[in-house]
Structure formats: structure tokens, C-alpha cells
Design a protein around this nucleic acid. Structure first.
Lengths: 239, 239
DNA sequence: CGACACCTTGAAGAGGTTCAAGAAATGTGG
DNA sequence: CCACATTTCTTGAACCTCTTCAAGGTGTCG
């Protein structure tokens, strides 16, 4: 294709530690380069894939930010996750060989396209890769478990606190601040993800500011008191 | 060990179609028998595994009924699923190599113990098994997605209707009635699963009886009007 | 600079929770 | 096998959190 295509290589990707090739030998990582067929750019607002489309590949995010969401026949929406650099999308498509959600870019993004057939083939030969694929899928199951806990048991303040802390922690793992960030999604998206209405999200942000947990300037969030914010998740008004 | 051990064999298990060996040749299914190290009985109320225990094996349910649940430090509980014959438990343990939930038998049960190392080894050789393991994990991700939708968007009646229909459908896939069943779990368990209080579950059951959707005698449920029950899930009081 | 999307805030309302009491079923030990 | 204890389920009434409806403010992008 173009010059971009040539540079494709896990072996010199700075997201190595967050993406597929963890714990592999130098040799194995180089073989892994075969997995990435090519890269694909997705513009803000566009879909990487849609529900119902044939599943062929997994996608690793190189840059950008995505949401994955389900919609029911009667139009209700549920965001199942927000994905950032180094994270894998498309796992839900394996079961039926059709994608089961929409993946929408919340900012201009670039992903590595990994044809699943190749992933499977190579993970038969590289046991470290096989194990890693299993772990990634299992981690997704565990992540969703904790969201079930959030949606089933937590009140609005706890949900939003958990959400903010999770984003900050993932951002920190990527070398950015652990106390400050720019949200890529709207209040409405946050609400859809957390099972709340956007007004509730907005009100809860305001309350967090009043209570001195955070500072908010539009989508810019700064944690002022990390302890008190964390404490919100753990103490549900004991009675 | 005992006679039980000798009979262990996927090749003559009547749950074959629901469990691991789908789409394998006769030959491959026989090799699969190696996967099942042994069987294990679990008494009603006992745990197959606990959160934090080292993960070694997946478990396929031969008989009985389980719940898997998470508990937070402050004692709140979330049931992440109910599992019946032919279903696989333990997938959440792969990621950290420790179990991430408790698996509790809701009636006397027997499971096939499948050491995960053996599963991985064999799925490197049998591509049909590899693919099947991937599909099982993906299916679990999809299942949890739909529970997120349920917890994030549905009201009590819709949740309970979806829950009942799901159980009936799975029971039907196992050759039992698609309109009648005996619930293995308490109202409280249903509530914890659906993100509702047990009183709400009980009230909603009563309402379903009043509205002529079902008949309830304790844990025995009989669907009188399948259409109207299904319709509850789809029409959220349009306004 | 104006249109549009996004966010905030208030007030009223609804769905589900909490607290409480009693009924029905289940299990246990004498 | 029955009596009693225990668990499970049902139902009512008051309450609370979040939602709904509504209006106005703020920021952004062509």
C-alpha cells in the first residue's frame, strides 16, 4: 500500500507491553509481526465495525479512543466499554463469527488489523501467544464481571467515582497523569455506560466538585483529593 | 480411584453437544477424553472454587446447578451467572491464574475437571478444539454484554421476564420443557443477579401472576402466556 | 458570528428500596 | 411422625434515589 504499511511491526511498537506480545522472546515477537495484516485509520465518529458484520479480525488500538455499544430493537443503548491504546477489540465476534457490537471512534484513531485465523494459527505454534490470547479474553470476562457489580450494586456517586478512577489508572499505566485527564466521551456516553441519565452524571460531577474531590472544566478532570474520591467507592453510607 | 473414574469419557457423554467437543471427528473426540482428568462431586451449598484460589482447571457441569458470585470488601454481592449442565465454569480464572469468583452449587452436582494446561496443549493440536475454546470464551463475553444491557437499561419487569425466558430456553435446549421449570435459586439470588431487592422480585412475580403471564407455586414456574411474557421485554412503556 | 451540540440546574414524579410483620414451606430432633 | 425452629416468601407503607421534563447557559465549529 503505502509507507505506513511497511512500518507495521509489533517488534518496534511502543505499545508492546500493553498489547499482544507479552512475555515472548525477541524471536517470537518478530514472528508475531505476521499477525498484523495492516493498519487502519478511523475518523472520529466513524465505526471500526458494526453489529452484524462478519467477524474476521481482532483490532489492537494504536492511537485513539473507542466506545463499544449495543442497541436493542426498541432503541435503547448500552455502552459495554471504552477502549484506549494497546487494548484489543472484537473478541465478542468470535462466538458467532459476526460482530456483536458497534465500535465507534471517539477521536481519530488507528488500529492494527489482526486476522483471527492468523492469530489462531500462530498461537498453535507459540504457546506464549496462545496463553496471552486466553488471558486477554479472560481479562475481558473479569472486567465485565466488575461492571455487573457496578451496575447491580452501586449508587450513582460510586459508579462515577469507579469510572473516573478506572480511566485514570489505565491512563497512568500508559505513562500519563494518574490524577488529571481529558474525557473523550460526552456526559451522555458516560451515563449510558454507567446505567445513569446524563443529568445524573452532570449533577454528580457538580457534587464531586462541591465536595472537593475533583475540579471540572468541561471534559477536563483534575482529581484534587484522590483519597476521598476512592473512599466513595468503598463506603456506601453504612446503615 | 473408583468405578466413576473409569466411566469418564467425553466420547460417550450425553452432553457432548453442549460442552466442549462440538464439530470434532470421532477420532478427535476420543483424544479429548484425556482432557477430563477426573470428576468431582459438589454438595448443595458447597463451593466448587472460591475467589482467590489458584486456578488450575476449567469445569464442565455434568449434573446440577451453580451460581457464580462476587463479593466486595464491604459485603455487597453480585451473582454473575447461573450455570447448568453442559456449561463451562472457571474462565475468569485464566487471566490472573486465580479464581475471580465463588462457584456455589445450588443443588448436588457433578463436574468434569479439565486441567487448563491439558486443554491448551490439546487445542494446539486439534484446531477444532482451539476454535471451540475461543468460542466458549467469546460467548461468555457476549452473555455478559447482554446482562450489562439488562442491568443498565431495563426495569424490574423486563429484567425478570428476560431472566425467566433465558432459563426456560436453556432448559429447552437440554430437552426439557420450554414453558415450565423449577427454579433452583431463591428470590434473593434472583434479586442479586438482576440488581433488584428480593422484595421487588417477589412483587414482580405476583404481578406476573395477576397479569396472567405465569403461574407460580413457590419455585415452580409455569408460563401461561409466552407471548405476553416475551412482549414485556420489548415494549418499555413507550412515551 | 450564529447555529448547534453539549452541559448544568431546578422541580416534580416514578420506580424501587427499606423497614416491618406475618404466612408458607422446609428441615430437624425428639 | 409430629412439633418446633428456621428459612423463604409475600405484602404493606413510608421513603429515597434517580428520572423526567423543562429551561437556560456554555462552548465549538463552520
Amino acid at each position: 500500500m503505502n509507507l505506513q504499511t511497511i512500518k507495521v511491526a509489533c517488534s518496534n511498537c511502543n505499545l508492546r507491553e500493553l498489547c499482544l506480545p507479552v512475555g515472548l522472546s525477541r524471536d517470537e515477537v518478530e514472528r508475531l509481526d505476521q499477525v498484523v495484516a495492516n493498519r487502519r485509520k478511523v475518523k472520529k465518529g466513524d465505526a471500526l465495525f458494526h453489529t452484524g458484520e462478519a467477524f474476521t479480525s481482532l483490532y489492537a488500538i494504536r492511537t485513539g479512543f473507542f466506545k463499544t455499544c449495543l442497541t436493542t430493537d426498541d432503541g435503547r443503548e448500552q455502552i459495554t466499554g471504552f477502549q484506549m491504546a494497546g487494548e484489543i477489540m472484537g473478541l465478542d465476534g468470535i462466538s458467532t463469527e459476526r460482530h456483536n457490537c458497534d465500535a465507534i471512534a471517539l477521536e481519530d484513531a488507528e488500529v492494527c488489523v489482526m486476522p483471527f485465523g492468523v492469530v489462531e494459527e500462530l498461537s498453535r505454534e507459540i504457546t506464549g501467544l496462545q496463553r496471552h490470547v486466553h488471558k486477554i479474553m479472560s481479562r475481558e470476562i473479569v472486567r465485565e464481571n466488575s461492571i455487573m457489580m457496578l451496575l447491580g450494586n452501586m449508587r450513582a456517586e460510586e459508579r462515577l467515582a469507579a469510572f473516573l478512577l478506572n480511566l485514570l489508572q489505565r491512563q497512568q499505566a500508559r505513562g500519563f497523569s494518574g490524577t488529571e485527564m481529558v474525557l473523550r466521551m460526552s456526559r451522555e456516553d458516560i451515563g449510558v455506560y454507567l446505567g445513569l441519565k446524563l443529568e445524573t452524571v452532570s449533577r454528580t460531577f457538580s457534587k464531586f466538585v462541591d465536595d472537593g474531590h475533583i475540579e471540572v472544566k468541561q471534559r477536563h478532570i483534575k482529581v484534587v483529593n484522590l483519597e476521598s474520591l476512592s473512599a466513595l467507592m468503598k463506603q456506601p453510607e453504612c446503615h
